[in-house]
Design a protein around this nucleic acid. Structure first.
Lengths: 206, 206, 206, 206
DNA sequence: ACCTAAGCGAGACGGTACGTCTGGTCTTTCT
DNA sequence: AGAAAGACCAGACGTACCGTCTCGCTTAGGT
């Protein structure tokens, strides 16, 4: 997680591996109970049975800690193979919606995105830990649809990247907006309608 | 804004109308300079040339204040009549993107949405002040497209409402995600591509 | 009280005479319930059924108001004629102790004295309203004792004044210290002992 | 001072001993410059180069802090041995008067006594830190006078205690009243007169 | 079996903002 | 012009967290 290059320390007492896990779990627990703005690092440390110094030795602050705590939630996303592009999309979007329905994800995600607006390093960390990691799903889905003949093959590789980004923004944006701003569940019916518009457009080509 | 129906007071010195405007302007200024998390109400009061008590007499806290300050930004959105549905959408999405490009909108909007997750009253306030107010644009656009024959008329009114919500989530979600999460500009090219996918679907029906 | 020269106003609504009394009574009531430091002028105004402005129009602040409110309490002191100097002193000291036992006197008196240390005008006001007004008791007592032959007549008038001040400081100081600092009641027994020491000295001349 | 036996803490960073001294000194400085009512704990903290939290961690509030700051002033009182009871009393009273002449003592002492009227814990603290500590002077003075044969030996021990309290109230009360209420200096002449009345009584036995 | 450097829990530290309260003043309308 | 009402500016209050620091203690690997 936070340890990009663990810098092999030769001497001294090694850092407790258990502490990391306990801290991240405590962070998610606190997010559920208190929400972002009332979550304090002192409280997280207490919940994790750890001193504040231990926490600060590993994370720079609340933002970084929550990014790592939330990122783990999204790693369980998988692209199911349900036979058609529409079914695949519906499947993955439902998974995404299920994660976003969890209070620790809701509370944490928007808050760190909000913080990232004035903090480039944080945005980069979010991108690495959360966003880019999930773009693979779009790529995979497209490849599978092309293999099935549901989508034409790529011609322009630049154009291809641009489209992946656009689709990702559209899918993630819609689900997030539905869940967090409109505060309505992204349930099966909504996902079906969304997928149809995404695939066939507003006019609903038959 | 915050005064839904201020209960017409008979006696005593009336509240200064100028103070409200000064406070909201100062809030936006502080959002630009400091961002959400470093914005303090004491600082806003100072910038507005107003005592802290005056501020607290009118708003319950940072969240409510920023909702009102940001809401004003979105009131300038207009649906242009450019002749076709595609052009109309492109026009309004570009306006939306332009507002979201302003730092006071960026900093404030996501933060209050994040806060609203654990605060129902705040979410309701956001919905009233910002979200529902702009859904009119979707309604207007559809009506115009139907008049032009670009979209079929409604049959089921319930279905019609559901579609408005879906479209709103898709449009707003995509632009917000592009701007705030991906942190890339929603420029003319992106808007053109987005509009095409929205209208004709992923496969790009001609 | 506070109006040394009522400045005969020709025009406009005259000041309510009842308000003065209500305010001073409310002040004493608040002193009993809240004590000096938690007494607020807003609260006094509310208790008196009067606007804060009315209160400030008549008194400069908390200090002045409380001096006037407390001064009234001491005006009821009388020097009884009990036949001997010792009995006279005991009588008046017991009265003084009874007043100081009342919470509004306790709370208010020491506080304004404390404030007066850095405020000459306030000290002067206290002297006029409280201290000098009661020195008459010492003068009266001495005159009566001289008439009875218990004390020799004055020779040096300057010396005479000096002695009055000394006796006053000794009597008032002892009772105040007993009541407020030692926080023990200045009851009959204590007063008897005190009077004896005062009259015959430490060694207790028979 | 405030640390009656702070329960020897085993772990954590120990409290800075220097901070205590700096805070008490800053408190006295602020008392001199500002007086009681304009003294703020924030200002004291700043003067002491200490955070407000550090101050509140050690003292419950302004009252307790000032008691400790003032108490230190009285610890320098000593009973001189000048050969006679009268001379001993004059010596110690002059010392007491000299301390009370200092603005930090004046400003602080009366104010905390005033506050103590509604706060039993505070009164107890004052008694422990200031009053009872100085009663030793009366005891010592009496013992010495008895050794010299100036005063008869005790017979009734209860009566003896009562007399100590009475003398203390008379001495302290008179000096305090002279200094703070009458606002006249307790100079050598006054002390001589006072001592004579105290020893020989009003009629002035030759 | 030591040595030593880093990690650890605890809690004090200097700061900063919070949201509330009070002190006095000012601005309304009504009397 | 005075009064009641209540908004206004100013600034202290006591609390809560922040992120850092200083303790004494533990825990390894290197010798």
């Amino acid at each position: 997680m936070q340890s990009r290059t663990p810098a092999p320390r030769a001497t001294g007492r090694p850092r407790s591996a258990a502490a990391d896990a306990a801290i991240l779990a405590a962070t998610r627990e606190a997010l559920v109970e208190l929400g972002w703005s009332k979550l304090t690092l002192g409280d997280v440390a207490t919940r994790a049975g750890v001193a504040k110094t231990t926490l600060y030795r590993r994370w720079a602050g609340k933002n970084e800690l929550v990014v790592d705590a939330v990122a783990e939630l999204f790693d369980e996303l998988r692209l199911p193979d349900r036979g058609t592009l529409a079914a695949d999309i519906e499947g993955v979007v439902l998974q995404f919606a299920a994660i976003l329905a969890r209070p620790e994800a809701k509370s944490g995600l928007m808050a760190v995105v909000a913080e990232s607006i004035r903090d480039d390093a944080l945005r980069e960390r979010i991108r690495e830990s959360i966003v880019d990691r999930q773009k693979r799903l779009v790529l995979e889905g497209r490849a599978r649809a092309q293999a099935r003949g549901e989508l034409p093959p790529e011609t322009d590789p630049l154009e291809a990247t641009r489209t992946v980004d656009l689709i990702f923004d559209m899918v993630a944006g819609a689900v997030v907006h539905r869940t967090l701003v409109s505060a309505e569940p992204a349930d099966e019916e909504w996902v079906r309608n969304f997928t149809q518009v995404l695939l066939t457009g507003l006019a609903g080509t038959p």
